[in-house]
Nucleic acid binder design. Structure first.
Lengths: 350, 350
DNA sequence: CAGCGGAACGTTAGCGCTAACGTTCCATCG
DNA sequence: CGATGGAACGTTAGCGCTAACGTTCCGCTG
């Protein structure tokens, strides 16, 4: 086990007939080696199948050109984000390692963060919780960028404008004439969820619509919670004509419930989601939703991190990227108000 | 940047008033330290916020209790698998690091595999391609387990029984009376896709059904390809009464196409998928599909790897796990054959 | 041609850790 | 009571690499 099989730099240097340090310089493309010798060394290293030992490299204080990402990987949103980051990192000639957090586990991820610190030049944390522990664990050894960390965060962060995004979705519904607008919330551990909820309450006040606690149902971003929340809403004596769900997945859960109740989307109830996950444009009905600027978030976070790694100080920068309302099939203007009650009794299909 | 902030073992030892090595033994729970002193050292280490430097640990030849996973993370199937592995690894007091392969990039992932070797005690590769490069890159430094690697693989592997799974799906359709059964293939780079295709051809022969090349349409596991493939099938003069799609995603693509054509599933055409992704039981219609034993695959692969890490030699073991046919709503017995032509003209809705 | 500077290399000293081997000390035994 | 052996500890030598210096040598200047 563990028989060394890769050659070491020293062996390469020996074969090439140069000193260890010259070989190191050649491999790392640093000055101080004549062009011929450099080429020679590189050729020999290649022939011998030499690869640098990153552990040793990092141990002796150098850059490894690796960044680490810590995330819960169970949603399309996060995994797409991670994919995007990988692409950006690779484009910058960095490699990216992912630590997949145990889903919904509040305990600190233990030594793994430390480990990543020891390996990587920087860390991106997609940890949307108000995690008190994060700051204690992640001390200032290497740069850290957070995604969706609340304003509390001591780290530079990149986030989508959840508040404005939710506002635009709700504004859309109001412009369509809806007055009884329900909200299916997300997991309130997440700042993003809280921002969307805040937008809901604010816009009601702003549009001088009454706030009805019955119309604000707790969810957790899951399809199931959307389904159940919608059922609660449908059971109300005066049910809403529009639903804003805190994310696309729960929006589709709500749609399923609405349909099972014999109602149609958007005929009877308009539904808006949040995220614009890929299938939102493919499933029927195509979902009106708020698009998160995934690619830009990936790009911005990686670039910010690399800037920090390079030693440029972007002092605790908070980047907020704009969202975009994507209007598709699941929303429609409110029909003449009177028809609503009729619809309840007749149970209008699609 | 990089100011050392974690204390080193030496510093802990100094504070504890013992030698470096005694501290190491205490921390690593090795014999040779008196119980009191051990407790003392552990307490002090904890107070000082000591964490081992894995890079150094690995460099000096020890275990790191980390396993690495290399995978394309863009499908629910792989990301769920990775999630499962993480849980199993954690249960065994191992940490897991993920390297997300660039999607559909055939080039070798370069130095990252070597890197993982240098950090991890073992690697699991979810690389369903017949990748010639894999074997050259991954040499025998640390144990490697592959998922879905073809039989060609030189490594121990864990895989679902794609062939039997496909057989059971097709058998199901045949038992329902279907005779014109189409196949939407997957990406043939993947051994799993090839196995499913092989099953398709075999079962036709076995059931003495004619093989019609028109009924075997190329796909690539994507929703779009399923959609387009179904359209091709619907355009045939004598269209199939059942479709077996190589995975769930493309099955849903096919269903969308069938519906757009004004036909119903399973009323006009039965559809079977493969994988049993979570939403297969939630979307309408609930999909009849072949369940891959995800949890078992995760468990088996991690356990196999850890066994190898522990030095037990499981000589090039190939574990094949059984699949399970899940019959839901998307398949139904073939109606009286004669009705088929009628249906074409009338365009039976649901 | 002495003097100097800079490119091209080599040497040394660690980074933090562990394996392997020393050393100390004390209980046990013939 | 000296020999013995084993537990408890300490010391040393690296793992593979790089930063920070040395050293060499050559071309150039005045």
């Amino acid at each position: 086990m563990m028989k060394r099989q890769y050659p070491t730099l020293a062996e390469v240097a020996k074969v090439a007939g140069v000193s260890l340090m010259t070989a190191s310089r050649a491999i790392n493309n640093r000055p101080g080696v004549s062009p011929e010798k450099r080429e020679d060394i590189l050729r020999i290293a290649d022939e011998m199948g030499y690869v640098v030992n990153r552990a040793a490299q990092k141990l002796s204080g150098a850059r490894t050109r690796i960044i680490a990402v810590v995330a819960e990987l169970h949603t399309p949103f996060t995994s797409d984000l991670v994919l995007g980051m990988g692409a950006v990192a690779r484009a910058a000639d960095y490699e990216m390692l992912v630590y997949s957090l145990p889903v919904c586990d509040r305990r600190p991820p233990g030594s793994i963060l430390d480990l990543l610190h020891q390996i990587a030049d920087g860390v991106i944390v997609i940890l949307p919780y108000e995690s008190d522990y994060l700051e204690s664990v992640v001390s200032a050894h290497i740069p850290v960028v957070t995604i969706e960390q609340g304003a509390v965060s001591a780290f530079p962060s990149v986030t989508a404008d959840n508040y404005q995004g939710a506002i635009s979705a709700l504004q859309h519904l109001i412009e369509l004439g809806h007055r009884r607008i329900a909200f299916i919330s997300g997991n309130d551990r997440l700042t993003s969820a809280r921002d969307r909820r805040r937008a809901y309450r604010d816009i009601l006040a702003q549009a001088r619509l009454p706030y009805d606690p019955d119309l604000e149902v707790a969810g957790d971003f899951s399809r199931k919670s959307g389904f159940e929340a919608a059922n609660k809403l449908l059971a109300l004596p005066d049910r809403p004509t529009a639903i804003f769900a805190a994310n696309d997945i729960s929006a589709y859960g709500a749609i399923a419930a609405i349909r099972e109740a014999g109602l149609s989307v958007p005929g009877d109830i308009s539904v808006v989601g949040f995220d614009d996950i890929p299938i939102a444009s493919q499933l029927h009905p195509q979902l009106t939703t708020v698009r998160q600027p995934l690619q830009q978030m990936a790009r911005a976070s990686v670039n910010l991190l690399l800037a920090l790694v390079a030693g440029l100080d972007a002092p605790s920068e908070q980047i907020v990227l704009p969202t975009q309302l994507i209007v598709r099939e699941s929303t429609t203007p409110l029909k003449a108000r009177k028809r609503k009650d009729e619809a309840v009794k007749v149970g209008v299909g699609r």
